[in-house]
């Protein structure tokens, strides 16, 4: 078995769920896992240290400076050189994919992005949806190691902490070499659940009728712990921000439960949600294409159904 390097991510004091998911993949591919993180939080650092790592490196941010692809890729390239891992694993998150790509470009090694499954064998194969999920591609590394992967969030089960806590080695990234630097983070309000990590997603489309009716979905989300998604049609109408768009030119989500309210089910929308475990569609038109992918459907007005559904779910939870 082999060495694996994972690029962990934290959000404030919390280790992101994707970090534990990366650990699961890392343990499938190797027996010695080292971690790299960049955080100013001792709490996050300590959680990372408890994941069962051989070694943990913190690319310590400077005052007012956070991520910088050039500087971070240079540090990772040094680590890769020194430790010769078989795999370097990132999350398919905005910064994870960015750093993975810059590292792949810097080192010229093989890179497979957005992996959703691994198949073991003499040379492992990696599964990745192509063409917005219309095709499932299987890939193999032809050269290397090292091999670079990003994994899609919410697919692999998160690993539990194990082993003794390791303390982090501090590395000061060379920010002076970076000509593009993340200088401020406008943190989201506490309690907002990331679409890509949510267990329940409730999405609205043009069938909601008007922008104000999105409030119904936000209410639902707040009370059930869901995240709110949207079709492109309503994003383009300006009813809701692009950050909520699900689909080929929006986000890909894999919740346990996806509830599509007043969404027709265009192929580009399906691209972003068809791997959800259970899909519920609420639509007035019984021949809407969304019903073809839905596990359960209600033919009816979503403005009427959503409040009832919320009430019923809360009742059932007691």
């Amino acid at each position: 078995m082999a060495k694996v390097l994972v690029y962990l991510e934290a959000k404030g004091d919390e280790l992101k769920k994707i970090s534990r998911e990366m650990m699961t993949v890392a343990r499938m591919l190797g027996d010695s896992v080292s971690g790299v993180i960049s955080t100013a939080s001792d709490v996050a650092l300590s959680s990372a240290g408890k994941l069962g790592l051989e070694k943990l490196t913190n690319l310590a941010p400077e005052e007012g400076k956070f991520y910088a692809s050039e500087a971070f890729a240079a540090e990772l390239a040094k680590l890769v050189e020194a430790e010769a891992p078989a795999y370097v694993i990132f999350g398919q998150t905005n910064l994870g994919r960015d750093l993975a790509a810059r590292l792949a470009a810097t080192t010229g090694v093989g890179y497979i992005s957005d992996v959703t499954a691994t198949e073991e064998g003499e040379t492992p194969t990696f599964v990745k949806p192509l063409y917005a999920g219309k095709i499932i591609g299987k890939f193999r590394f032809k050269a290397g190691p090292p091999h670079i992967l990003t994994i899609r969030p919410n697919i692999f089960s998160p690993a539990e902490a194990e082993g003794a806590e390791v303390s982090a080695e501090i590395v000061q990234p060379d920010y002076s070499s970076a000509r593009a630097v993340l200088t401020s983070i406008a943190e989201k309000a506490a309690g907002t659940i990331d679409l890509r990590e949510a267990t329940i997603v409730i999405s609205g489309g043009r069938g909601l009728g008007e922008a104000a009716n999105f409030q119904m979905l936000f209410d639902f989300a707040e009370k059930t712990g869901a995240a709110v998604g949207a079709s492109r049609a309503v994003v383009d109408e300006g009813w809701i921000e692009h950050a909520h768009q699900v689909g080929q030119t929006g986000k890909t989500v894999n919740p346990t439960l996806y509830i599509a309210c007043g969404i027709s089910g265009a192929i580009q929308h399906l691209a972003g949600m068809q791997t959800s475990k259970c899909i519920v569609a609420i639509n007035t038109n019984e021949s809407a294409p969304i019903f073809k992918v839905a596990d359960y459907g209600i033919v009816g007005d979503c403005k009427e159904v959503v409040p009832l559904l919320l009430e019923e779910i809360l009742k059932s939870r007691g």
């Binding site: 095709i135 499932i136 193999r140 032809k142 596990d295 459907g297 209600i298």
Partner: peptide
């Protein structure tokens, strides 16, 4: 450095069902 071994169609989702009921609330 990477080769595509195989492309397939994803498995089709099992057909679902429309929940029936007299009133919306029943559904």
């Amino acid at each position: 450095k990477v080769e595509e071994v195989q492309a397939t169609h994803p498995p089709a989702r099992e057909p679902g069902r429309i929940i029936q009921g007299e009133e919306i609330a029943d559904r």
